[in-house]
């Protein structure tokens, strides 16, 4: 396998992480911690897959994945914004629910083959480039537009943003929905391009790795992108070591690499200084006083 193909497979392994992590980044920048990424990715994966398996174009499949993620996210939004429920518990509920529901609606599609998203350039499919474009667009939007400024303000100090007449709940609702759609896209990419097939729990913790990437990337889109590609290369390294059989290492140990890498990265690279970059209002409920 040439180096070029390895680079391509890194990009493909990184793309679902890029989507999910960027979505979560926007959500967290608005001050909301959504631990339901894994569940939303699974729902995106299964709904995108069902759409394509039923004959739809892959673009429709990707849109179905995004929509599924956003729908699930709206449940989370109802809990944490409407009912002021604990964000950690609500996010866990979302993951548990999404895991179960995706398994339920996908049970007839296990093993069904679909056509992979076709490549357009350098053997890569358009979603890879879309993910790169999204990270640039999100960075520009966050730092160069008034809406981006308002989103950051809401995540920094919701009370103050409210006092200035910004509608905290609306901003957060949109951020949560966007995060859900992006997670759904990431999931759909897994089932439509990366594998491409549907299996229960196929995200295998990528949603959680995406959450870790946001911390690792210090809530900056550029760094999150780099982090996702680093993780993509860990995954590809693992696959190549496995398939080449050069190393006499059991495949299970190689499969542990991404998880061990996540822990190591979180432990070694997240200094207190970096953590202090977290949006100040992250995880805090906001009650309208009126």
């Amino acid at each position: 396998m040439t180096d070029f193909l390895i680079l391509g497979s890194i990009a493909m392994a990184a793309t679902p992480l890029v989507f999910a992590a960027l979505g979560e980044l926007v959500t967290e920048r608005a001050g909301v911690l959504n631990l339901g990424v894994e569940g939303m990715m699974l729902m995106g994966a299964v709904c995108g897959f069902i759409a394509v398996a039923s004959g739809a174009h892959w673009i429709v499949g990707a849109a179905a994945g995004a929509l599924a993620g956003a729908c699930l996210a709206s449940l989370f939004a109802a809990l944490v914004l409407g009912f002021a429920a604990n964000q950690v518990a609500s996010g866990l509920a979302l993951t548990i629910f999404g895991t179960g529901l995706s398994a339920l609606i996908g049970s007839n599609y296990v093993g069904t083959p679909v056509d992979k998203i076709p490549a357009v350039l350098w053997g890569l499919d358009p979603m890879v480039f879309a993910a790169l474009a999204m990270s640039a667009a999100i960075a520009l939007w966050l730092y160069r537009t008034r809406q981006g400024l308002i989103l950051r303000a809401v995540g920094e100090n919701a009370e103050a943003a409210h006092a200035h007449g910004h509608t905290v709940l609306k901003v957060r609702l949109l951020a949560i929905m966007f995060g859900g759609a992006m997670s759904g896209l990431g999931g759909a990419y897994l089932s439509l391009a990366y594998t491409p097939l549907w299996a229960e729990g196929m995200t295998a913790g990528r949603g959680w790795i995406a959450l870790a990437l946001v911390v690792f990337g210090a809530w900056r889109p550029g760094r999150v992108l780099i982090g996702a590609y680093l993780f993509g290369s860990v995954g590809v390294l693992q696959l190549h070591a496995q398939s080449s059989g050069l190393l006499a290492i059991p495949s299970e140990i190689l499969s542990m690499l991404p998880y061990i890498a996540t822990i190591a990265v979180l432990a070694l690279l997240t200094t207190r200084q970096q953590q202090s970059r977290a949006p100040a209002a992250l995880g805090q409920a906001f009650h309208r006083l009126r």
Partner: peptide
């Protein structure tokens, strides 16, 4: 306000823009 409604992580200009209609 008595308790400043400022955003610590943002710049002075960004803070002021947030208090304006359509401020950039």
């Amino acid at each position: 306000f008595q308790h400043f409604s400022l955003f610590d992580a943002l710049t002075v200009a960004e803070n002021i823009a947030l208090g304006l209609d359509n401020g950039r």
